[in-house]
Every structure is written in structure tokens, then in C-alpha cells.
Simulated scan of single mutants.
Amino acid sequence: MSRLVKTLRTEEELKNKLKSPEKLVVLEFVKPGNQVCVYVQPEREKIAEDLKEKADFFELDVDEFKKYAEKLQVEALPAFVVMQNFVKKRHVVGTDDLKKAIDEVHATFGRKTQDETAPKDPAERKTQDESAPKDPEPEQTTPGSGSVQRPEPSSRENTTVKQLHEVDNNTKFSHLVTNGKNRKIRIYKLEQDDGTIIGEANLKIYITKYYKGLFANRSIIILR
């Protein structure tokens, strides 16, 4: 049993934890026995330790909390959902972007959004709109009033502008092709029978354990 990541068993427990006014709540949806969920546990524990002053971590069996998993749009495991006062703020799969997501939400923790501070009464909102400063309307000028009117661009000028746009678009396309040739192919997801492994850190953990198990019990044969 983890010291920092507690397992929730009932819906009542979940609702009580989501009431936390002082910290964010991180819900991890897992499936018991799923190898991908097991692989990310060490990194999850480290993040929970580093961010214990900002968030409380809870583990939920996706089958026991199926209603909440569907409501929070959990489609891949392990899924981490960052909650604030019953509101979903972030949703990440795996631990690669988990710490960053929590830090971003915590940076705005406790602040009221513009919608929350906006007046609820339509009459009050209308009064604010009328009192708000407005951009000055452009002055209308007439021929002969001493103002200088800008002539309409000629057909030659229009053709030149069109050609410049075409050259600019072609240059952008050339840059895209050049950059595409220099890009490296990176593996960021591996689908297994018992789940999907997402993220560079999780892939490293899985591949290391796989090859250790593959060669651990094999005897060495020396040919002479």
C-alpha cells in the first residue's frame, strides 16, 4: 500500500475527497493486474512525493468506478485526471506530462475565472457594457474637404501583391519539406494485449524489464 497514493473503494469516499478546498485532487484510473499500470507506479510515487503540498493522489479501479471513468472520458490506462472542486482541469495518460499538468493547474489554483466574476444580472452587465470605453469611430471625409483620398490599387499592383503571396506560400512549403526530411522517427506508444504503453519514460521502463526477464534465467554456454 502506497503511503501517498490512497485507494478509494466507494463513491462516498470519492465525493468526500473531491471536496478538498486546500489541494488539487489527482485521480488515477487503473485496472488491477494491468502491466502498464504496474510499470508507472515508481514514477507516480515520485511525483506524488514531489507534489504532496499541491495535490492529493488517489487510485481508482476503473471497473468499480466505471460511471466516473465514462463521465471523465477515460479511454486509455493509466489515466490521471486532475480535479479542482469537482471540476476536471487536466487529463493525461501515463506519467510523462503528469507533473507539468499539476503545476499548470496549481498556478491558477484559487483564482476566479472571468465567468465567475462577471455580473449575473443581465441589467448590471448591460450597464457595465455601456460604461465601458469604446473605440473612437473613424471620421468620414468627403471630396473637396481638404483630405487626401487614397487611390484604388491598379491591376498591376494587384498582380504584384498576388505574386508575392504565391512566393511566400511556396517558401513555407519548401521549409516544411526540408524540415520533414530532417525529422527523426520516434516511438511514443506501444500497444500490448493488456494495455497501451504511452510516453518515453514508460517505454524505457517496459523495455528494460522485458529484456531483463528475457535473459535473466538463461545459462551461458562457452564454445571451445
Rank of each mutant, 00 (worst) to 15 (best):
A118K: 10
D56C: 05
P143G: 06
Q192P: 00
D61C: 08
V167N: 10
Q84D: 15
R156F: 09
D97K: 14
S147W: 13
K112S: 10
K67W: 07
F109L: 04
I205V: 14
Q35L: 14
T117L: 15
K209P: 03
H175K: 13
I207R: 03
T95R: 05
T108P: 00
G94I: 01
A76L: 15
R186E: 11
F65V: 00
F65A: 01
Y211T: 05
D50Y: 04
V105D: 05
G195F: 01
E130I: 09
T141P: 01
L8A: 08
T7D: 14
P153T: 02
L72W: 14
L4P: 04
E116A: 10
E116F: 05
T108C: 03
K66W: 02
D56V: 11
A69K: 01
K31L: 15
K88T: 13
V87D: 09
S2E: 10
E53R: 09
N85R: 14
P32R: 05
V5Q: 05
F173W: 11
A118E: 07
Q163T: 06
E104R: 09
L14N: 02
I207A: 11
K181C: 08
N217S: 11
K162D: 10
K19W: 06
L14G: 05
F80T: 02
E139Q: 14
R111N: 10
R125E: 12
K189G: 05
L203D: 02
T141Y: 14
Q114F: 13
K134P: 00
E49N: 11
S131N: 13
Y68A: 13
S20Y: 02
A201N: 13
L98R: 04
N169R: 14
T127H: 08
T159W: 07
V92D: 02
E12H: 06
K88R: 15
L77C: 09
T171S: 11
L176I: 12
V105C: 01
E45A: 11
P153N: 03
S155Q: 11
G33I: 07
Q163F: 01
D96G: 09
K184L: 12
R9L: 12
Y39Q: 08
V92L: 01
Y188E: 11
V167Y: 13
D129R: 12
P78G: 07
Q114Y: 10
E137K: 15
K99D: 06
H175T: 10
Y188S: 11
